Amino acid sequence: MTKHLSDDTIQEYRTKGATVLRGVFSDWIGTLADGIAYNMEHPAPNVRNYQSEDGGRFFVDYCNWDRVKEYKDFIFNSDAAEIGAELMGSTSVRLFHEHVLVKTPKTGIPTPWHQDLPYYCLDATQTVSIWIPLDEVPRDRTLEFIAGSHLWGKHYRPQRFDGTALNENDGLEELPDIDGHREDYDIVAWELSPGDALAFDYRTVHGAPANLSATAQRRAFSLRLVGEDATFARREGIVTSPPFPEVTLKHGEPLSGPEFPVLI
């Protein structure tokens, strides 16, 4: 495979749990924009539309790659899988799912601090989310990460993006009050332009501010990839997101099947 990333970028990813990739998907922004436009007009049954008191809309949808041709084109024909392999240090890469998040202007709804892995029917250490903005994202609207939190060895209680718990009695601990004690954490974040991307581990604690701009939207396509150590997880009485109701894998079996195609 062609080497896409510097050793410093890979090292930052593995030590901080997040890094920025400049200009790596500049040729794909139009394709992904067309896909998101189609997706918003034809959402999946599991779509979430969070309405802000200010009139904004936070649109969240996932697992549409097999019916949105632009998503499929990007997933199978871009350099994303090779980039993911370098970051994870994995010889194989499998798609877990894609996730679209759109905050229209005046969306006074933040993305709460959270980890991705506790939401998932998945156990893995080789993971990467590649978050690709289709609009300019200034510092006050970008994702923030707690550097090194992927190495804390903790799984925190998942929340819906409206702040309610996904599972009330899941036995997991609550996240600490990060916003109330920001000085206690190494918070990293980057301004972004279309074509840039953020890459982060599923275990990295992250969140994002509300979009209080009166005119600017924030569209993002997030690609969720896993490496060779990923196994399916079934947790009794626990709702996962995405739900993957058709998957028949048993707990602990290697991730496989048509829902999770091999990319490398």
Results as ranks from 00 to 15, higher is better:
3 K>L: 08
5 L>M: 07
6 S>P: 00
7 D>R: 02
7 D>L: 09
8 D>V: 12
18 A>F: 00
18 A>I: 06
22 R>G: 10
22 R>S: 12
25 F>A: 11
28 W>D: 13
29 I>D: 10
33 A>L: 13
35 G>Y: 04
36 I>M: 12
36 I>S: 01
37 A>E: 15
38 Y>I: 08
43 P>R: 02
44 A>I: 05
45 P>F: 10
46 N>Y: 12
46 N>V: 08
48 R>V: 14
55 G>V: 07
58 F>E: 02
60 V>Q: 13
65 W>G: 01
68 V>L: 03
72 K>A: 15
75 I>V: 15
76 F>T: 11
77 N>M: 01
77 N>E: 10
81 A>L: 00
82 E>S: 12
84 G>T: 05
86 E>F: 08
89 G>P: 05
90 S>F: 10
91 T>F: 11
93 V>Y: 04
94 R>N: 14
94 R>Y: 13
95 L>G: 03
95 L>N: 06
101 L>W: 04
102 V>K: 05
106 K>H: 12
108 G>S: 12
109 I>K: 00
109 I>V: 07
109 I>P: 04
109 I>Q: 00
115 Q>F: 06
115 Q>P: 05
117 L>S: 07
117 L>D: 09
117 L>M: 15
118 P>L: 08
125 T>V: 10
130 I>C: 01
130 I>T: 01
131 W>A: 04
134 L>M: 12
138 P>D: 01
140 D>S: 07
141 R>F: 02
145 F>E: 03
146 I>T: 03
148 G>W: 03
151 L>M: 11
157 R>D: 13
157 R>S: 14
161 F>W: 13
164 T>L: 03
165 A>V: 11
169 N>V: 00
175 L>V: 04
175 L>N: 05
176 P>M: 09
181 H>K: 13
182 R>T: 05
183 E>W: 03
184 D>Y: 09
184 D>R: 14
190 W>R: 09
191 E>W: 09
192 L>T: 00
194 P>I: 13
195 G>V: 05
197 A>H: 08
198 L>Q: 07
200 F>W: 00
209 P>K: 11
209 P>C: 06
216 A>D: 15
218 R>I: 05
218 R>L: 11
218 R>Q: 11
222 S>C: 13
223 L>W: 06
224 R>F: 14
233 A>K: 13
234 R>G: 01
237 G>K: 00
249 L>K: 04
249 L>M: 08
253 E>G: 06
256 S>M: 14
256 S>N: 10
257 G>H: 06
259 E>R: 09
263 L>S: 10
